[in-house]
Simulated scan of single mutants.
Amino acid sequence: MPELVLVTGGSGYIAGWCVAELLRRGYHVRTTVRSPEREKSVTEAVSTAVDPAGRLSFAVADLTADEGWDTALKGVDHVLHVASPLGATSDDPAALIGPARDGALRVLRAATAAGVRRVVMTSAANAASPSSYATEGVTDETLWTDPEDPTLIPYRRSKTLAERAAWGFMETYDGPTELTTVLPGAVFGPILTSDNLGSVGIVARMLSGEMRGVPRIGLEVVDVRDLVDVHIRAMTSPAAAGQRFLATGEFVWMADMARTLHDGLGEQGSRVSTRQVPDFVVRLVARFRDPSLREITPALGRRNRHSTEKARTLLGWEPRPAREAVLDCAHSLIAHKVVQDSPGRPSTTHPGPGPR
């Protein structure tokens, strides 16, 4: 019998690709959704990549409640715990931290009770980053972000505390279930559906012309397909048990991404602004006009990078170049009509021609 893998949060961007790739590799997949009404949209999204007939099932479970998790884990061999509160901003930090931390513990309790072989949990590279945004250099999985650092945005704190809680739980557990965590960078690449764009929304804003200029922020770009691949390698490799794996990609500045889109897409990239906004302008706008930008200001000019040597050596993982991930992302957004492919007609989100 094919192994059964539970993927949490099947309607999410990364989770949807996990479901599709597991099915493509011959696994049976069960995925959690918050309500039965979401099952159809998940099935339709996955069907654009692979035929799920007879091998995809659903369980209703939410990270914020105990109900449903024991049923979801029944008969499961492995878990990819991908679901997490979305968004890097929140007026109430507890709205991110509580569900992320408590949700991870709910999944682990149910998984260990069910005798699951291994849980692979999606954390984030910024759970293994220096607390000081001014720090440059290269760090690895041995570093833990300080969750008490007052400069941390709620999302970064939530991912750190959730992963710490997961490892803390495993320290008190004495049984066969194993835990592995994967810490991705900025996730781009093609989409399965326009329903949930996740981080891909950045590329959509660039393509539409809504982003009139780009801040001096660097991203370690990883393609969603490569991120799914490292999750499955972490799920199946004996060497991965009890390990953290950074899954970041090539470091690029947002201005480099903009130039890749503008120059690599021809007319389809004509609305992309390649103008880099000075740091002081971003800070002024964040202070007086757009408070939502305040959380990105500490990252301006930061060039801390992460080493993926561990994933490459132990798992044989090889991510694709950032340029390929970004361009494939753009082509997919255009194909799904998230962004108009005719530069002759202005995007509905485009405020005007603007400088480049």
Results as ranks from 00 to 15, higher is better:
27 Y>N: 07
245 F>L: 04
83 A>I: 02
169 F>V: 02
52 P>K: 13
316 G>L: 09
173 Y>I: 07
276 Q>H: 02
131 S>M: 07
137 G>N: 14
203 V>S: 10
312 R>Y: 02
335 A>D: 15
40 K>S: 10
81 H>P: 12
305 R>W: 05
302 R>C: 06
50 V>N: 01
288 F>G: 06
283 R>Y: 02
23 L>K: 06
206 M>T: 09
96 L>G: 13
241 A>S: 14
338 V>G: 02
180 T>N: 12
89 T>F: 12
115 G>L: 02
210 E>M: 11
207 L>E: 03
328 D>L: 06
128 A>K: 11
9 G>T: 08
29 V>D: 05
120 V>W: 15
70 D>F: 05
196 N>S: 13
332 S>K: 06
259 R>P: 13
212 R>F: 05
133 Y>A: 15
270 S>C: 12
120 V>C: 14
322 A>K: 07
323 R>G: 03
106 R>Y: 08
94 A>C: 00
338 V>K: 01
7 V>R: 14
293 L>Y: 13
228 V>N: 06
75 G>W: 02
179 L>N: 12
193 T>P: 01
356 R>A: 04
80 L>Y: 05
285 V>T: 13
18 C>R: 02
113 A>K: 07
288 F>A: 13
168 G>P: 03
274 T>F: 00
313 T>F: 07
61 A>G: 11
255 A>G: 13
143 L>F: 10
341 D>K: 13
147 P>K: 10
145 T>D: 09
238 P>Q: 02
